[in-house]
Nucleic acid binder design. Structure first.
Lengths: 148, 148
DNA sequence: TCCGAAGTAGGAATGATTCTTATCTAGTTT
DNA sequence: AAACTAGATAAGAATCATTCCTACTTCGGA
């Protein structure tokens, strides 16, 4: 995800009726740089390095605003903490049940337009993605070593 | 999901090292009859009709046990309450962001074996499903009517 | 520059889920 | 059939992510 210029962002936010504050900018930056699909709390820790006074509540509110305006997505995973992705382009996720790590993967052949009848007729589709759950390689090795 | 006979279940549970208690039977029944992907609390309400003394904690513990033994799945959705599905066969979900309803859909062409390279190499895949998010027809009509 | 809407901090409140402890039960052993 | 033991259960307390409340501050248009 490439960062947009300040003026470009300002226009983008204005169009959505959002104000482009310092905190929101920092959160956007963290999201843009993150490759680990961080939780709100993790984002908070990272943002605090550059803006130490930001409150966790602000992080939550901002992420909620970003999500409803299509600037970020909340990843469809169960689990204690919500996980966010600043990349809203079409892609899919690999979710490790052990260590909770989340990785992206692309699947160009996957096409929302070819979803079956029932999905097309269901209502207004906003997004569709594949969720693969299991055990990542790292955890798999660990559990094998432990067993032997 | 068809109910299995008692003896059959007993064997199935014994094989997994689980005890087949009255409570677990009732929870299984509720899951088998449910088509709405209920939350733990909803399951609790239904189970209480037949077994009024069951505690919510038992519901949570049992669902956890069922999930790790492949007798139920927790649906990969974000949101305040976890949602469960007694159907563990390959299928996908339509999730309404407004009313939180969840519907099943089948997609025979979807094949785990044809996931792209990166997903195959990631680790041990336990399941893969498509999550479609958006607004169901009912909510869509409501919001349109309100707007006009 | 002024105003109202929107954003913010900090702490309190909420609500789902899990843990603790003492008790109980299913399936097994004697 | 009585005793045994690992696994289950109930009840309430504890946790922890997330949201709400209140008072204060900032942004952007007029």
């Amino acid at each position: 995800m490439q960062s947009k210029g300040y003026e470009e962002l300002k226009t983008l936010f204005a169009d959505k009726g959002l104000k482009l504050t310092h905190q929101r900018l920092e959160i956007l930056n963290v999201l843009a740089e993150a490759k680990d699909h961080p939780s709100a709390e993790t984002i908070w820790e990272r943002v605090k390095k550059r803006a130490p006074t930001v409150s966790l509540d602000t992080i939550y509110r901002t992420l909620g605003a970003f999500e409803s305006h299509g600037l970020a997505q909340r990843i469809p995973v169960e689990g204690e903490q919500a996980r966010y992705d600043g990349d809203v382009s079409q892609h899919h996720h690999l979710v490790c049940r052990k260590c909770r790590s989340i990785e992206d993967f692309d699947w160009p052949e996957f096409d929302i337009a070819s979803l079956p009848e029932k999905a097309q007729a269901w209502g207004r589709v906003e997004d569709a993605q594949v969720i693969v759950r299991g055990e990542c390689e790292k955890c798999r090795e660990l559990s094998m070593r432990r067993r032997s």
